[in-house]
Design a protein around this nucleic acid. Structure first.
Length: 464
DNA sequence: TGAAATGTTGGGGCG
DNA sequence: ACGCCCCAACATTTC
């Protein structure tokens, strides 16, 4: 019997339940690129996907099977592969995004009707949505319910070897998919920052375990290497959450602060599962006709890190260059877009979707809604980050801003986060001409704050 | 996983 | 010595 393993967002051989279930007999591993689904991967994700598939292909070859690559709607592709290779059984690990889950259900029904054995597994949740007693809109009880299930089970070992399918199946080549940029090749910063693939993910866990005891403090300082940076590896399933959970538990004392963050990831997955329109519509309907502004010039300034607020610009440039942004700074730039600029959170969501290597539909949507105040357990509307104070508090020595906004690096710490308050002499000495070599603030903080409070007050009046 | 405004307290300078 | 004021420093309230 030959089993087709449909790889999706589980690009690993260790702790892969579908692969393990298939590995008792002959295996045909397949990845299908389906750009007909909504929210097709953005540019940064496509770069990562290329690298990750390349890595998975090597891993599978090493074990004795070769990865088949195909494009098209999953069901169409799977039907033809089943016919081509004499497949009698198809297995995969489940996804929870609305379109992907619907695709899985469609495939399951159609293949079952043709007499094919079909099985799906959980590979990317600590608890699948239907494992908890009820749906949650608030994180605290969600986290409690998750903990009450006890420790997750132990990860599965990788298969020792794989028996390849007797009948070969045609594969497309990765380079034909053109997932990577060429003209221009903007991926230099990504290559310099990341090692996509299962081995890279394992190395990242090892590196994080070294610094994880300091996580509770260090995670808030973007100039330090205090966070795990596991998000893209988790998104593509190069590592499973339970592998991370057990690695941290075994090696880090007092790991709960970090494990809680894994639970936030899970919380978002559950929210999207409950509310399929989460990426498009505000969860709280009072926000349906919120008076968002339209301002292409300011949106462009935000995207490219030219707002005149150093901590915001640093974050946006780190994102553009490396495909990733420190979480503390994500909150600052998101708050700035939504509150200071009053631009729709969907605009920020779309930009992050295209530029983040860890772009994940559930996490991206849930977190943007959280910042905008229209989501689950959302930040209250009057919580408006002051980009100057946030910079001074979390980047006091200026390491982060100086790295990503080099044109103001020579400013003294006292004004680094507010160049417009620097004296003429001090600007001169630092080689800065405000409005020329570095922008003046595109909005005044106090005025923008007052405007946001007024706009968000309208929501409160409506909800009451 | 805020910030700003407002209120309170207590030490110290000063007449 | 005493009352008065100033104002950090901290606490509370409000947005």
């Amino acid at each position: 019997m030959t089993t087709l393993v449909w790889f999706r967002q589980d690009l690993r051989v260790t702790d892969n339940p579908a692969l393990t279930a298939a590995a008792r007999g002959a295996v045909l591993p397949v990845f299908i690129l389906d750009d007909t689904l909504p929210w097709a991967p953005g540019a940064a994700s496509r770069w990562w996907l290329h690298e990750s598939l390349s890595s998975l292909g090597s891993e599978l070859s090493r074990l004795g099977a070769s990865l088949v690559l195909r494009r098209g709607p999953a069901l169409t592709v799977l039907k033809s592969l089943v016919a081509e290779a004499g497949i009698t059984r198809v297995v995969w690990n489940r996804l929870y995004e609305p379109a992907a889950a619907a695709r899985g259900a469609e495939v399951k029904a159609a293949l079952t009707a043709r007499g094919i054995a079909v099985e799906s597994y959980n590979a990317s949740c600590l608890a699948e949505p239907w494992h908890l007693p009820r749906p949650y809109q608030v994180f605290a009880p969600f986290w409690r319910a998750l903990q009450e299930r006890g420790e997750p089970s132990q990860p599965l070992p990788p298969p020792l070897r794989l028996v390849p399918a007797a009948a070969a199946a045609r594969s497309e080549t990765l380079s034909d998919w053109k997932l990577q940029p060429n003209k221009p090749d903007w991926a230099e910063g990504l290559r310099a920052t990341w090692t996509p693939g299962e081995a890279g993910a394992a190395a990242r866990i090892d590196a994080f375990c070294e610094v994880a005891p300091g996580y509770g403090r260090a995670r808030d300082f973007p100039g330090e290497e205090g966070t795990s940076r596991l998000s893209p590896h988790l998104h593509f399933g190069e590592v499973s959450p339970r592998q991370v959970w057990h690695a941290i538990r075994a090696r880090v004392p007092d790991a709960d602060i970090y494990l809680r963050e894994l639970a936030w990831r899970e919380f978002s997955i559950h929210l999207l599962h409950q509310s399929p329109t989460l990426p498009e519509e505000p969860l709280r309907s009072a926000f349906a006709d919120f008076p968002w502004r339209r301002d292409p010039a300011q949106l462009r300034a935000w995207r490219h890190g030219r707002t005149g607020y150093p901590i915001v610009d640093a974050g946006m440039r780190q994102l553009w260059r490396t495909g990733w942004m420190h979480n503390r700074v994500r909150m600052i730039v998101a708050s700035f877009l939504v509150k200071h600029l009053l631009l729709p959170w969907q605009e920020g969501e779309a930009w992050f979707w295209d530029t983040l290597v860890d772009a994940d539909l559930a996490n991206n949507a849930a977190n943007w809604q959280w910042v905008a105040g229209c989501g689950a357990d959302a930040a209250t509307y009057f919580r408006i980050f002051n980009p100057v104070l946030q910079g001074e508090k979390f980047d006091p020595a200026g390491a982060y801003v100086r790295r990503w906004v080099p044109e103001i690096a020579r400013l003294p710490n006292a004004v680094l986060h507010k160049p417009w308050q620097a004296s003429a002499a001090s600007l001169d000495e630092a080689g800065i001409r405000l409005g020329d070599t570095y922008p003046r603030p595109i909005v005044d903080h106090a005025a923008a704050r007052a405007r946001a409070l007024a706009a968000f007050n309208g929501i409160r009046a409506k909800a009451a």
